[in-house]
Amino acid sequence: MDIKISQTANLPSYWGEFKVKVFKENFKEHMVIFKEPFGEILNTRIHSECITGDTFSSLKCDCGEQLHASLEYISKNGGMVIYLRQEGRNIGLLNKINAYALQDKGLDTIEANHQLGFKADERTYEIVDFILKHFGITKINLLTNNPDKLKSLKCVEIVRRIPIQIKPNKYNIKYLKTKKERMGHILDVV
């Protein structure tokens, strides 16, 4: 992997004061937002970019609310958010909006991705291993509901899974049910 790494800078935010560092992998710039001290076991959220949820507060998903809950948790308990530039489960923004249009016609997220020629989830997590090694992290508590993230990390021991349960709304209930029933996400809310 040919990775370029930025300097560390301060990032004061609504949730508290963090540090930030960027890891550039080809054309993707992944951001790591962290609060020290780390301790022996690092609280970690691996979050894939969702401009509609993270930036524009879309109610069609739970992404923005998961990101905000993670930042709040890490602000209080220390740790890091690894913000991966893998928009739309790594199909890109244009294809994600095309998938949204198919969902508006009744398809679920998996069916929409398949109709566009993609797998249900195109994300990969090798860069996460690189980032955790860079910081010297060997044990983490992973803030996730996604079983694929629990299986994908190779360089660390996952000591505990910390769930992030977001209350469903009328716009994302089908999305959350699909994540739970068809993708195996560990959700109690639907």
Rank of each mutant, 00 (worst) to 15 (best):
H30D: 02
N113T: 09
G79A: 07
C61H: 07
V20Q: 03
L176I: 05
R182D: 02
D129E: 14
F18Q: 01
G39I: 12
G88V: 06
P147H: 10
V156Y: 01
I186W: 14
Y175G: 06
D148T: 11
L150M: 15
Y83H: 08
N10K: 15
L67D: 02
L176Q: 02
G92V: 11
V128Q: 06
T44Y: 03
K154W: 08
Y171T: 02
S48Q: 09
R123H: 09
Y100A: 13
E122I: 14
K174C: 00
T178A: 11
D129W: 14
L142N: 10
I97P: 09
E49A: 15
E65M: 14
K180A: 15
E49G: 03
Y14P: 00
P163G: 10
S48K: 07
A99L: 03
R182K: 15
K174V: 10
Y175K: 07
G106M: 12
I127G: 10
A112P: 05
L84W: 05
I173K: 15
I97C: 13
Q66V: 14
N26V: 11
S6G: 13
D2Y: 08
L143E: 04
E72C: 13
S152P: 05
M1K: 12
G184Y: 11
K60V: 06
D2S: 12
E40Y: 09
D121E: 03
F18C: 07
E29P: 00
I137P: 04
L11C: 04
G53E: 00
P163N: 13
N95E: 10
V32T: 08
Q103E: 14
K21R: 15
I46Q: 01
F38L: 15
I173P: 00
L67V: 09
K174F: 04
I162C: 02
K133R: 12
G78E: 01
L143F: 12
K76R: 15
P168I: 08
Q165M: 15
L150W: 03
L107E: 01
Y125D: 01
K179P: 00
E157H: 06
N145P: 04
I110T: 11
G136L: 13
D62L: 15
I3Y: 07
G136A: 10
L59A: 13
R160Y: 02
G79T: 03
K105F: 04
P147Y: 05
E157C: 06
I3A: 06
N169H: 08
D104T: 01
W15G: 01
Q115K: 14
V22H: 08
